[in-house]
């Protein structure tokens, strides 16, 4: 009944054969797909969040250094290094966060060191959320979260300009409705 990977099944309506090669997703390069970068403002927002988190520790460590124990300056320096590394990491992460709307699915790529590529078929989406925290709102950003029947599908796209996020959500919802498949 079933042929294996290499052998194209003659009678069965196999998708890849008739429909041209179909989209080729890849971890590197754009391979001819409309990959869209998220807003670089996301990096700014995340950097601010990072600095706000580290600042109290730096202040505390600095206070200890001034009043109690000089070696605590090492802690301040370490925190500064951590902040620099974090900023570099955030810039890279945001730069490599892209998504592409394909005919049947949405593909999301993230990460440089630890890379992930997720493809979620429109027909498998259960619902699509739009979220925006206080900091993201200040930067006019929102994230679109795509939910399937599995919580581990992991389809969320942070850092979209609000209007773009709204439009994407609408498009996804419409496609989800028209391509919906039963479980």
């Amino acid at each position: 009944m079933s042929e294996t990977a290499g052998v194209p099944a003659a009678p069965a309506p196999q998708a890849p054969a008739p429909q041209a090669p179909g989209p080729q997703v890849a971890m590197d390069g754009d391979s001819g797909l409309p990959w869209v970068h998220v807003s670089p403002r996301l990096a700014t927002a995340r950097t601010i969040a990072l600095l706000l988190t580290l600042l109290p520790f730096a202040l505390a460590s600095g206070a200890v250094a001034v009043f109690l124990w000089r070696w605590a300056w090492v802690g301040v320096a370490a925190l500064a290094l951590l902040a620099l590394w974090g900023i570099w990491l955030i810039r890279r992460q945001v730069a490599f966060l892209t998504y592409a709307e394909l005919p049947e699915e949405i593909a999301i790529r993230r990460g440089r060191m630890f890379r992930t590529l997720v493809t979620v078929p429109y027909g498998r989406m259960q619902y699509v959320d739009m979220q925006s925290g206080p900091l993201a709102r200040r930067f006019g950003l929102a994230s679109v979260e795509i939910h399937t029947a599995s919580p581990s599908s992991g389809g969320d796209i942070p850092g979209l300009p609000v209007a773009e996020a709204e439009a994407l959500r609408e498009r996804l919802a419409a496609r989800g409705e028209s391509q919906r498949a039963g479980l």
């Binding site: 997703v25 890379r115 992930t116 590529l117 997720v118 078929p121 399937t148 029947a149 581990s152 599908s153």
Partner: peptide, 24 residues
């Protein structure tokens, strides 16, 4: 439900990657 391709730094050096076919 969805497909996920992941690759860590070691796997990258060895030219490997993992594929998860996400089920319910």
């Amino acid at each position: 439900q969805s497909a996920r391709l992941t690759q860590g730094p070691l796997e990258r050096r060895l030219g490997l990657a993992d594929v998860t076919l996400v089920s319910t």
